[in-house]
Simulated scan of single mutants.
Amino acid sequence: MPQRVDHDQRRREIAGAVWRIVADRGLDSVRMREVAAEAGVSLRLVQYYFETKHNLLVLALRYLREDTERRARERIEGQAGQSARGVLRGVLTGLLPLDIESEFALRVRLAYFSRSYREPGVFPDRDIALEDLVTHLLEQGEPMPGIRPQHEADLLVSGITGLGFDILRGRRRTTAVLATLDYHLDRIFGP
């Protein structure tokens, strides 16, 4: 009896190979043949699933975002009973390069971010699921009067990502970034 193949899982495994190449050597180093070798599959299989290098890069980024969002939701579930501020802090610190998995994901996102200047189609125009999640968390809490959750979510996600890039580059210390995050959360929720 032929073995059933989970096509989505196979695509995700190939996307993981893209991430490893990108994290180690940058986005310009991605070649379909190298991705196939890294994933342990044939070049033909990579071409079958993705057709073009552009499709491969875009879908690999989408899977990375889905993985980041899944990890954020797992953090939320793991912090049941905490305040909205505490849950939000946990989600946002999960975006910082504080462990191997988060550092890896941030290095890949940084490579995509850099490439987006030359090739705008690599980043979708509107992919704000993480900002929507943060907005929801802000709305669940009791923010200070005058706080606009969507605007704060945009600032928090973009800000923590930028500060994470600074940690990667050695420009900022983790303790200083966490102090900045706490400052903004105190401004939103009160001390």
Rank of each mutant, 00 (worst) to 15 (best):
F50L: 05
P149K: 11
M32V: 15
T180K: 07
A80V: 06
M144N: 12
T52G: 06
A15M: 03
A39C: 00
Q150R: 15
T175Y: 00
G94F: 03
E77R: 13
V122K: 03
A111P: 09
R31T: 13
Y49G: 02
Y63G: 03
R75P: 02
I167M: 13
D182H: 11
L178P: 01
A153T: 05
V30E: 03
R172Y: 04
V134A: 04
R107V: 02
A23I: 06
D8K: 10
T180H: 14
R10H: 02
V134F: 11
S29V: 09
V5E: 05
R109W: 13
I128R: 12
I160L: 13
R10W: 01
R187N: 07
I128M: 08
V18R: 04
E34H: 07
D154T: 14
R89H: 08
G162L: 15
Y49C: 04
V91I: 09
G164V: 08
G40W: 06
G40D: 09
Q47C: 04
N55P: 01
A72M: 10
L133I: 06
V18A: 04
P120G: 05
E74Q: 13
I21C: 04
R89T: 05
L110S: 04
E74V: 12
T93Y: 05
D28M: 00
H7I: 11
T68D: 12
A23C: 00
Y117W: 15
H136W: 08
D127G: 04
S158L: 12
A17M: 10
R10V: 06
G78D: 13
L64E: 08
R62W: 13
G170F: 07
N55W: 03
V41W: 00
E103Y: 10
I21L: 15
H136Y: 06
M1I: 10
P120R: 10
L98Y: 05
L163E: 11
G26S: 01
L156C: 07
Q140A: 11
L45Y: 10
R10G: 02
G16V: 03
Q150V: 10
E103T: 09
R148G: 01
